[in-house]
Amino acid sequence: MSLSTKEVNKIAWLGRIAIDDDKIEAYARDLSGILDFVEQMSVLDTSTVTPMAHPMDQTQRLRPDHVTEENQRGLFQANAPLVDAGLYLVPKVIE
C-alpha cells in the first residue's frame, strides 16, 4: 500500500500535525512500509469471526448520579498555557 504525499498531507491535517515539506516523503515511505506490513492480515478469511474489543467479557458499570468533584480551577489552570478570567484562551475561532 503506497501512500502519496497528498494522502499523507490529508492524514496529517486530520491529525492536526504539522509536517515540514522536506519530511513528507520520508513519512510517506515509513507509513507505506507500515501499511504493507499490516497488510498481512488480509490473507486470512475472518468473515465469521466476532471482533474482540476487550479481553474481558464484561459490561459497563454504572455510577450513581452524585456530585463529588469540587472546584479546583486554580490547581488545574496552573498548567495552562494561557488563561484569563478563568477561561482558556486560544486564537480566535471563526465560525
Partner: peptide
C-alpha cells in the same frame, strides 16, 4: 446532577471552568 462520565456538577450559570 452530575455529568455523564464524571462526578462534576451540571448546574447552569457557574463561573467559568469551576465545574
Amino acid at each position: 446532577r452530575s455529568k455523564i462520565f464524571s462526578a462534576a456538577a451540571t448546574a447552569y450559570g457557574a463561573e467559568p471552568n469551576t465545574q
